[in-house]
Amino acid sequence: MDVNMTYATQEMWTWWLAIYLYFGGLGAATLAVTFLTDMYLKPHRHLVIWGAGAGVVLLALGSLMLFGHLLHKSAVFHVLNPMILFNKPDAWIAWGTQFIIWMMVWGVLYALPDVRETQFPRRVPVIKNLIDQPFVIAIAKVVKHYHRGVGWLAVVNGVGVAVYTGLLLQSFPAVALWHNPAVPLLFTVSAFSTAMAFLLLLMYTLLHDQADEYIRVLYERIDLVLIAAELVILFSLYQYLKNGSESAVRSMELLWNDHGWLIGFIGFGLIVPFFLELKSMMKGWSTRVPIITASVLVLVGGYLLRHYFMYAGVYAYPW
């Protein structure tokens, strides 16, 4: 069919969906990293509580963003039902919703014994009353017995959430920027990189403990590798878009001609933190300010990635 084409971006899913994807990836990856640290590196009560708390709060906020934009909110119950995975196994939102729900459930359960043994939650009246209920004490005992099993259930669902955020965009075939295998990979790596940055920020400020120095060093090195991987994926994506379909080329032009993407995200969100953390690994810093700076930049960059990705998806409409 001999047709002309109009190229257009969309206005359906914008900044609020970027927040949903960002909070989803960040919260889920933070929970997964803290639980793995607690299970295999060093039992760390505060890290677990912060990880589970961040996971639940960020996922709840992100999900609220999506829920607030639903046209028919009461129909959301269909997707909250776990049986939806048998009815709609091909829909990533169905999987993502279940991953989010079960990550929250297993995350809270995993943290429950630690919450009961920590003083801070007891200062909050509602939590104090709840965690002293006999059934909660009984659940905490069971969870403690099966601690690693519960932890792994939370971690698997957390990783599922992080991967899902990319798979969701990949499932839209009309947009070359989204419909390619680099996207789930990019979003997963970015989710774990922002989680490392969040935890480094936490461990250099509110949870600063000299005994955790080796955990911080490990997180820094993992983040360094993740940022490097992200840069490689972005370079591959650039090559794919540059030589791809018209939709791809136009997305590439939108992104790489935008200072927010090029300088804000790639420059300050990836390259600057990469060198700050590289210097830390090779020669060290006399102060914690550079790593705190790097962490803040990575966190801002993580949002910018998703923000620009949503706005730069180009559709090709024939006429």
Binding site: L70, H72, K73, A75, H78, V79, A91, L168
Partner: peptide, 28 residues
């Protein structure tokens, strides 16, 4: 494929339909 609730479905005669009661309006 992307419809999470199954509101969008295809009839055997090829027509793609939307069940408005099932649709939560996510816009996917």
């Amino acid at each position: 494929t992307v419809c999470p609730t199954g509101a969008t479905y295809k009839k055997p005669n090829g027509i793609v339909m939307v069940n408005q009661e099932l649709c939560m309006g996510c816009g996917a």
